[in-house]
Design a protein around this nucleic acid. Structure first.
Lengths: 293, 293
DNA sequence: CTGTTAGCGCCTTCAG
DNA sequence: CTGAAGGCGCTAACAG
């Protein structure tokens, strides 16, 4: 039972390969990113890679610092959910070194070794179409950061779906927020103070939906009777909220796994960038007006 | 603008110090561990350390494998929420190497360079005492894994509090579960099928409480009228559940930060093991019977 | 096919 | 005080 363990460090120094992957997200404490992390970590471990984690704190500066640190550690690859890095600095710090980078959730168009994103436009479309079935016409959007493709595409999807339904989008019904519960709460409060209130709200993320719920609770508003709510992203406790949340669901763990798979392939075989999209589906619950009212 | 970057690898090989810390938890996707990770990562980054993450998958075998991998990577320290490693194997794989290890949430008594835990017994005591105020005497406990000190201490705290209140603990009202929503659901269903049902349930974690809520919803039970619920751990959406959850709250990010601080100190200065305990407080909401019924 | 050697890039020592 | 050299542990290349 001789247990000789070769030194990973010396090996890495010699081979210029660390079998380590950097993982950068806006906020690890968010259930979506935490789940994606779990998926990625599991898949990477299977392939013999370790994950080094950094949190960008929803700031480009933080993201750049994280990338620098990781690259400095000679990671073999990067898994990045960007908060809006520019092509210039991305090229300068990562492309230049040739380290493969797979984007997930939010991407930088045309950069990196691939991406795994959600069907953002379709998801918002499902939400709008369903609210329209319930008779809503005056629908508001809690939009997320437009510096991220996820936020941007959901806004675009909103406009597209409204147009498809021949509905007009009042500018005051579109509120751009950071991805936090607090901003969702504030934006909802503003929406509720409008002369002509919306009858339904679409939230671009679970955080924003929670903020909306909180605002409604404060205001003593009854959902879904006085305001309907539907949301992109189905948190795992969505069915247990009051009211149970109608949402667009997908598997966040899968997002992490797919991204990891793409990255491992890019590290080992290189090749052309590959885009992958994770399907979404509508989960009807009570907040939109469905079910036993 | 000459940007010379010394090689972290060569430096590590030479100095035998990697400025990297291993972080091992049962399940990163759980909000508590995700938040603790965020806290730890932030604090470690401040001190110049990187975090390498591994998930034990709630299994001792997974935990051991994670520890081996991390040690193999010459991490300077370890942050570990153990699922029940034995002293023998802990000594064999970590103590022997002299790598400092700070436990958090769940610990191995007498091992490592310190620990950060929660006031488990006190928290459960707050819950029981409060339920007693509402008139409950037949109180059930959804206990978590007894291989973890968190689970074990909460069970002990339950017995202590019940005794203090001069209440008898019927053995069939104590259900030991894994820390998952599903096990909480199943255990609650069993509790509800008992001849003599409990009038209140204390859940040892948010996951278990969610399972209990799900079971009640399935069974058409009205909370808190037909069953009161209170829970150790206040998830950030606790106020928005139906009914809003009465819970024992604490700051999970702080747990991670404290653990990181202890670890950095242990790495740099060594010294005696330090135990730290994070305070908890009761948050009264509707699920226990408080508020506008 | 097996054994030896020359670095990988750094830090620390020691000589000048 | 400044500068050269040895070696951390490994692997790839090369010689025998």
């Amino acid at each position: 039972m001789l247990q000789f363990q070769p030194s990973v460090l010396a090996r890495s120094l010699r081979t210029r390969t660390t079998h380590t992957v950097g993982f950068v997200v806006p906020d690890v404490a968010s259930p979506f990113y935490a789940a994606a992390l779990k998926g990625a970590q599991g898949a990477l471990e299977q392939s013999g890679y370790r994950v080094m984690l950094m949190d960008s704190g929803q700031e480009v500066a933080g993201e750049v610092a994280a990338l620098r640190t990781l690259l400095n550690h000679q990671v073999d690859g990067l898994l990045l959910s960007t908060v809006g890095i520019s092509m210039r600095v991305f090229d300068e710090i990562v492309s230049r070194r040739g380290t493969p980078c797979v984007f997930f959730d939010s991407m930088l168009a045309g950069a990196g070794a691939g991406s795994v994103t959600l069907d953002n436009a379709e998801g918002i479309g499902l939400l709008i179409d369903h609210l329209v079935v319930h008779g809503h016409r005056r629908i508001a959007l809690l939009a997320g950061s437009l510096d991220e493709t996820s936020g941007h595409e959901r806004l675009e999807g909103f406009h597209a779906a409204m147009t498809r339904q021949h509905l007009r989008v009042s500018p005051e019904l579109v509120r751009v927020c950071k991805w936090t519960q607090e901003e969702g709460r504030l934006a909802t409060l503003e929406l509720l103070s409008l002369e002509s209130r919306p009858t339904a709200v679409v939230a671009s993320s679970a955080e924003l939906a929670l903020g909306c719920l909180a605002a409604c609770r404060e205001s003593g508003l009854r959902l879904p009777e006085e305001l309907a709510l539907a949301c992109f992203d189905d948190p795992y406790f969505g069915a247990l909220l009051e009211p149970a949340l109608t949402a667009v669901a997908y598997d966040p763990i899968e997002v992490g796994q797919e991204a990891a798979a793409l990255l491992v392939d890019a590290i080992r075989n290189g090749g052309e960038p590959r885009q992958r999209s994770v399907p979404v589906r509508l989960v009807r619950r009570r907040s939109c007006g469905c079910g036993a009212a």
